[in-house]
């Protein structure tokens, strides 16, 4: 009786580490497949297109609203100190350093990540991956590797779009509705946002999130139990795990970049 929960815990623990191991093996296998994609870059472009198109609308709309909220909140705080001229800086830094990469990654996980898991999982369930193996085509190189690279490339692009649209949203609210000086909004932003410290760090975050979210999505699909239920569970896990990973990694990366 008493042993049962401990056994259960042990089984869960073993399970976890086995999955972790399989995940890393898959990661290595995918990385080994990347060089072979160079002569066939069309495969990657195709995936960038489908991943990007999947996420573009939601990224643009969310970016706009987040920017507008930042404009409103930032104005309300800044105006108490008579510093509403700095609204542009506040909006831009929040987006470029934090919200752009993080919110984009979360949306990407929900939109493109879950779709990737479902696609790969269904290909496994319908024996398409097996059939490829029997045709002497490695599904990890042919199917997973191009999707991985596409996620890696798309994430920073989408985050950049998110931030750009957000800055415009902040502009609409701050300058258009609340009467912040237009010149100040842009010029302060230009003066204070640093290419290395802010933009490059934001882009680095995006690349890291792109790797992690796409890796989790592909692994969950590839490792899914090949049934309808297994695939649906894997899809849920992709969203949960990659969201948690993004938020946790964001703290670590922020501490490394801006901490000291």
């Amino acid at each position: 009786m008493l042993l049962a929960p401990i056994q259960e815990l042990g089984r869960k623990g073993l399970d976890f580490f086995q999955r972790l191991g399989r995940g890393h093996l898959l990661f290595g296998h995918i990385l080994a497949g990347l060089p072979a994609l160079l002569p066939r870059f069309g495969l990657v472009i195709q995936q960038v297109f489908s991943v990007g198109v999947l996420s573009l609308v939601i990224i643009v709309v969310s970016g706009l609203f987040v920017g507008m909220v930042l404009g409103l909140q930032g104005y309300n705080t800044l105006v108490d100190f008579g510093a509403e001229e700095s609204l542009g800086v506040v909006v831009a830094l929040s987006l470029v350093r934090e919200l752009g990469p993080v919110v984009t990654a979360l949306l990407f996980a929900g939109r493109a990540g879950s779709a990737l898991t479902a696609e790969i999982g269904l290909m496994k369930a319908t024996e398409q991956l097996s059939a490829m193996e029997m045709m002497a085509v490695d599904p990890i190189r042919r199917v997973l590797a191009p999707r991985f690279l596409a996620g890696f490339i798309s994430m920073p692009l989408l985050a950049a779009i998110f931030s750009a649209v957000g800055v415009l949203g902040g502009y609409f609210v701050g300058v258009g509705l609340l009467g912040v000086d237009q010149g100040a909004y842009w010029s302060q932003m230009q003066a204070k946002v640093d290419v290395y410290n802010d933009i490059l760090n934001g882009v680095t975050k995006s690349f890291v999130f792109g790797v992690v979210v796409t890796w989790i999505a592909l692994f969950e699909g590839y490792d899914a139990i090949p049934t309808a239920e297994g695939v649906s569970r894997a899809t849920t896990r992709t969203v949960v795990h990659s969201s948690l990973a993004v938020l946790g990694l964001d703290f670590i990366l922020t501490a490394l970049m801006f901490g000291a």
Binding site: L122, M123, T126, E127, Q128, S130, A131, M132, E133, M134, M135, A136, V137, R142
Partner: peptide, 30 residues
């Protein structure tokens, strides 16, 4: 395996490609 053909129980055609591209798949890969 390039010299072995296998017909799967349920066909296992690649979704997202039409019939032509499915049959062309091994030719284009190899």
């Amino acid at each position: 395996r390039k010299r072995m053909g296998m017909l799967f129980q349920n066909g296992a055609l690649l979704t997202g490609m039409n019939v032509f591209d499915n049959v062309a798949f091994p030719l284009r890969e190899h």
